[in-house]
Amino acid sequence: MDSQSIATTPEELDRSVLPHAHEHPAFLRHHFEDVGQQREAASFGMWVFLLTEVMFFGGLFCAYLIFRNWYHPAFVAGSNTLDIALGTTNTAVLICSSFTMAMAVYSAEIRRRGQLILFLVLTILLGSVFLGIKAVEYHQKYVEHHIPGPSFSIQDFVHPTNPKAIPLAPDMAEKTQLYFFLYFAMTGMHALHMIIGIALLFIMVARASKGAYTEGHVIPVENFGLYWHFVDIVWIFLFPLLYLISRYR
């Protein structure tokens, strides 16, 4: 109560200037009553940030929803050029990395430094594998001339080699460019979030090795975990929308 009220009497003023009478950990900020309140406030702030991210990715998802309905044949044709094996593998890799991140949060909570570093490094490795597989997929698109822009070719959609594929009229085939634009925008923004996450993970490993998070101050690990799991959730929705729902039968 004292830390929130304004000092009015001389005695109160005096007490507020003096060092705190009670013990508290070094990481507890002075504007918080206790560790629990600080943790609650930090989680709240992180969730509000993640909700702005929901709105950001949500705009892309909404654009995808509208254009997929407008140019359905083009979106089906575009979706079928993606490699479903690589997409499924990447989903599994990302879920594994979410698991190792959850275990890293647990390790910080039970104050095991070595275990925390192990799980953070495993998360870095799995995140890098995801980006590596994504790079292979992007390279395939480059080779096939499926990157939107001057080098984009509608040849594969007007004269498809897949016997199940329905040949598209040139004007509809042009709309596959819109599919690939959204594909690169959505997976690209997702990959950017992964790259930022991996960069933060390197900083966290360096700080964790000095024991920064295993003395009770788990908020940075916990909040980074929230961010990492959010990026996982974005992919959980991207994977069915981009790879699965338009398969040829």
């Binding site: 508290h24 950990p25 009553e33 206790d34 560790v35 629990g36 309140q37 943790r39 609650e40 959850a102 275990m103 647990y106 909570e109 039970i110 009770g216």
Partner: peptide, 16 residues
Amino acid sequence: KTQETHQDAEVHVVKP
């Protein structure tokens, strides 16, 4: 330390 905090922010450690 965290045990004595107000119950609203009680920390629950999720087990492996």
